[in-house]
């Protein structure tokens, strides 16, 4: 049985960059009001912002909104950001590779080095940063929506 959430937010928002910071602040405010500890609030807000930024940057340009969900439970927090996919599309290959790349402990520093060394696009740096913060990340497809999910333990 799933633990009772101390905070549960489910929102559909316009894919506008300015909404990221507005919502990051709102998540922080709501979590603090729910008496969530400051370190969890910080990590949840960071994960939320990074996933929202990715959802807005890389989601299907034809759609006008993304869906975000934040749940903070006594032992863990879950952040899910859903962006629209073209019909029949799976998890995009760059995202699959980015999720594979962050599975080792030094992935964030390795990504920093890779960007510096190759002038390659910086895609995946935000995910590597979240992994470095202790988030477990995965991607799922539900119908025409791509969900990227971050889970973090509140004890670390």
């Amino acid at each position: 049985m799933r633990a009772t959430a101390v905070l549960d937010l489910d929102i559909s928002v316009a894919r506008q960059w300015s909404n990221v910071e507005l919502l990051r602040g709102a998540v922080q405010t709501c979590a603090l009001a729910a008496e969530v500890d400051a370190e969890t609030v910080r990590r949840v807000a960071l994960a939320f912002a990074e996933l929202c930024e990715n959802g807005i940057k890389y989601g299907s340009a034809g759609e006008s909104h993304i869906r975000v969900h934040v749940s903070i439970e006594p032992a863990a927090a879950h952040i899910r950001v859903e962006s629209p996919l073209a019909a029949g599309e799976g998890v995009p290959l760059p995202l699959v590779r980015a999720l594979e790349d962050i599975e080792h402990a030094e992935a964030f520093a390795a990504k920093v080095e890779a960007i510096a060394g190759t002038d390659s696009p910086a895609g995946g740096l935000g995910l590597a940063r979240l992994a470095h913060e202790g988030c477990r990340l995965r991607a799922e497809v539900h119908g025409d929506w791509l969900a990227v999910i971050a889970e973090l333990s509140r004890s670390t």
């Binding site: 990051r24 960071l46 912002a49 990074e50 930024e53 920093v112 960007i115 510096a116 910086a122 740096l125 935000g126 940063r129």
Partner: peptide, 16 residues
Amino acid sequence: EHFNSSTITALIALVQ
């Protein structure tokens, strides 16, 4: 207070 990962990319470019 906060920076996003795109800012980190800008700092990497500055180092170079």
